[in-house]
Nucleic acid binder design. Structure first.
Length: 393
DNA sequence: CCTCCACTGGAAACCTAGGCTC
DNA sequence: GAGCCTAGGTTTCCAGTGGAGG
């Protein structure tokens, strides 16, 4: 804070010299070629190619852990496809179900991308689906829908939408809707209706994690585009690849890491992005992830998390509930039932903010063993920014 | 081997906010 | 504006259960 404004600007001016094209490291950036995914690219292209003859491609399922290139490959192929024959009415909306939030909002995004104007709430799901099909039909749209985090959708809302969509072929005389489903979870198929599964999984493709070697090559390539020459030494790339590689070969994380490290170096006025920058970036990436997750949490979930943070040694559902009830009362918030709190604990577990494993303690009953997975001080700092909590504290 | 605790988690009913129709 | 619709969050109800202590 005490930094003299001139020196800040001086550093920024010097630092700016590090980046050539920072966009090459942004999450939306799709490179001209995706190394180590040639096989998947041609497989996806093969499946989708019939769209160029106005016939409906098979539905397609892509599996793989986060950062294995599923999204990049599908976006890459779809953009090529659109570029190939712009005269055809090919639409390739991309929707992430988890980011959209609910079943309805996922549909809302799909509908919007097809040019429909739909209220964000109030309509029946069946009504939105009807409108989507009717616009496909009336304007002869050829739609290939990339539906990301499809496993989230199924888990939380069932396969109703997919059931409707996979029957699209039977419902439209002109135009079509094909689905490219993208999933992080290989097991989600188990809960699918067999009819949906056989239709959606007409074609399947698995994305293996990148090896550390591959990550290194990818990073080197991106770094060459993003940074000036000599700014990122080989050892930095190696460390970055190693860090991301230990997290199941997540390329997105590796690229994020490099970008943030570059920003750190820039801010500090360094001439090079060194190992220390990468380590700092690694902390920041983790902090940002937690921060974002915490901020977007509903009030009740925050109160529950705050309660859990009081038990550093770990705790259980009953204990959390009594603590939560007291805290909620003091804050003046509504007090939820234990059933609901139990459900929220499961949600927080899914988000990776707490660990909530069901354990049996014999005669002393069953409960969830609950442990906070994020640093207490981070949690308290971010949650105390919520006005309805601060006011009471 | 049986009991019985402290919950879990499914199912259904209820509530609220918002759109639609007339 | 009244009356009807639905989605999503919550409550109510409750059968089910893993395993330590008996």
């Amino acid at each position: 804070m005490s930094d003299d404004i001139d020196s800040i600007f001086q550093r920024a001016k010097r630092g700016k010299a590090l980046f050539l094209d920072r966009k090459a490291l942004s999450p939306e950036y799709i490179p001209d070629h995706l190394p180590f995914r040639e096989q998947q690219i041609s497989a996806v292209a093969e499946v989708l190619a019939p769209a160029l003859h106005m016939s409906k491609p098979s539905n397609l399922l892509l599996y793989g852990k986060t950062g294995t290139g599923k999204t990049a490959v599908s976006r890459y192929v779809l953009s090529k496809l659109m570029a190939e024959e712009p005269s055809l009415n090919i639409f390739t909306p991309y929707v992430n179900a988890r980011i959209a939030g609910t079943e309805y909002l996922t549909l809302w995004e799909i509908a919007s991308s097809l040019g429909l104007t739909i209220p964000k709430t109030g309509l029946a799901i069946a009504e939105v689906i009807k409108q989507i099909f009717s616009v496909i039909q009336s304007q002869s749209l050829n739609v290939i829908l990339a539906l990301d985090e499809i496993d989230y959708l199924i888990h939380s809302y069932g396969d109703n939408i997919l059931y409707q969509f996979t029957r699209a072929g039977e419902r439209t005389a002109t135009g079509f809707l094909s689905i490219v489903g993208i999933s992080n979870d290989l097991k989600f198929k188990e809960v699918l209706d067999p009819r949906v599964l056989s239709s959606l999984g007409e074609e399947e493709l698995v994305f293996p994690p990148y090896t550390v070697e591959e990550l290194r090559a990818i990073l080197a390539e991106r770094a060459a585009v993003a940074f000036k020459q000599g700014v990122v030494p080989q050892s930095t790339v190696n460390l970055c690849a190693a860090l991301a590689g230990s997290e199941h070969g997540d390329a997105r994380r590796a690229v994020d890491l490099l970008r943030i490290a570059g920003e750190v170096a820039e801010r500090e006025g360094f001439q090079r992005v060194d190992d220390a920058c990468i380590r700092k970036a690694s902390e920041k990436v983790e902090y940002d992830r937690v921060e974002e997750a915490l901020r977007s949490l509903p009030l009740q979930n925050k109160i529950i998390l705050l309660t859990i943070s009081k038990f550093q040694q770990g705790t259980n559902t009953g204990e959390v509930y009594t603590g939560y009830a007291t805290l909620a009362k003091r804050i003046g918030a509504e007090i939820l039932t234990q059933r609901r709190v139990s459900g929220i604990l499961a949600e927080l577990d899914l988000l990776g903010l707490v660990e909530a494993a069901v354990v049996s303690k014999g005669r002393r009953g069953r409960t969830k063993r609950i442990r906070l997975l994020i640093p207490t001080d981070t949690l308290e700092k971010i949650i105390s920014e919520d006005p309805s909590i601060t006011a009471a504290a």
